[in-house]
Amino acid sequence: MKSVSNTSTIVLQTNELTIGYSGELGAEKYLHQNINLQIARGEFICLLGPNGAGKTTLIKTLAGLIKPICGTIKLNHLPIQSLSIQRIAKLISIVFTERLNLTDMTVYDLVALGRSPHTGFFGRLSALDHEKVAQAINDCGITHLKNRSLNQLSDGEQQKAFIAKALSQDTPIIILDEPTAFLDISSRIELMRLLKKLSIEKNKAILLSTHDLDLALRSADRLWLLAREQTLITGIPEDLILSNKFKNFFDKDGILFDNQTGAFSEHLTNLKTIRLIGNGLEFKWVQRALKRSGYQPTPDKGEFMEIEVSNETHGIYHVSHPNGSLTSLRTIEDLLSHLSVSADGIT
């Protein structure tokens, strides 16, 4: 695979990598073969793929926690096998999915542990270490939480504390395994924004696995698509969409990727056509409600019901039947229930 990235900024590179794990009696289970990847400084990469595709195995192999079955991984142009774990600790920091129940450990303590690869025998922090810890905490926007115990934090706050730990580790690469998994939607957006910011401002290479396709498409510089028994697909989001690779990758029964909107939709059958006219915000949401409820809105006239949404008459929806009767409704909820009753009446 060709890459336009400047080779001097490449921090991680794999060549014909085979990943998997050794099972019983030394038998090896291959998950993926011929993986050729590279990560450059400042790059924000999202790894997408269904559960069981081997995302975590890939991440752990890249971080040197699992031995590759064959092929090479180079960190800063040096083969990973030749590096001690102390050395790797200064090149890659990880945030795992695993939740920790840490009593009595403050955010500051945790972030300070990120300095471990740089501190001496007793782990005592120098003035510079303290400065880097405070900086990492500040970069993640959790300075107000620094003296709080970790088990008193919300999931999103904890996740930020662990990202601060990874930052204070001061590595060119940060890898996160499903960092948004336990978070609510606003925390997810906030977290992605934070990671994106760090990749730009701190020139960090950030790789994260996620199921948040929408967020990944919006923020990733590059996507890695990994599925069982398939070769890893990489590329920038827009290229993957235009070449239909993204669509094909996620093609499953009943789920469609809409290349126009860049979003997934449920594929419904037996749609009923309905005429919808109007404009503005309300028009958009009525259209959405209709689609969700199994209607195919069209602006064209025909032998079916007609809904008129207008911006002047705020919150009033006029429904006219093919038989000529007219009804006005105040909410979309009333509109939908009126439609379903009338539909029953007709058939």
Partner: peptide, 15 residues
Amino acid sequence: NILLLGTQYSTNLGL
């Protein structure tokens, strides 16, 4: 102190 974070984080911190 590093061990408190579990085996995975410990290895990643060079232990």
